[in-house]
Amino acid sequence: MPTVSMTVNGQAVSGEVEDRTLLVEFIRENLNLTGTHVGCDTSQCGACVVHVNGDSMKSCTMLAMQANGAEVTTIEGLAQGGEMHPMQQAFHDNHGLQCGFCTPGMLMSAIDLVAKNPDPDETTIREQLEGNICRCTGYHNIVKAVQQAAKTMGG
């Protein structure tokens, strides 16, 4: 079996995988970082979104071997020194979740969204979250959370 090496949340990690192992399987099963979820496994729902070299990607639609040598950030890498990331704080403040299953992917996509659109309007937020499905909230409070976080992250 091949060995894959990458940096996850700032730490160098490596492990033996099958050639067909998905990035999300490596993250959840080899690294035990189970905050990254598998909702649909068909690239639709976005629960598995992580950052690979700074861009948000669906880790269920990427082989672990394709991330060999990459810098990966998962939901576990957001909080620093016990302080929530501004996007996590904004989801908390605005009740941007109900069951929470989609939340890790929603946060990872939303952070990439704000990084690329520092002052997004509501339409931009809704369009840019197209790849993340939430079956509880109706998205309203998620959009409000992203708007709040964009202000915090920008300032």
Partner: peptide, 9 residues
Amino acid sequence: IGDPQVRNR
């Protein structure tokens, strides 16, 4: 095309 995450890959 697709959504932002698909467009990133």
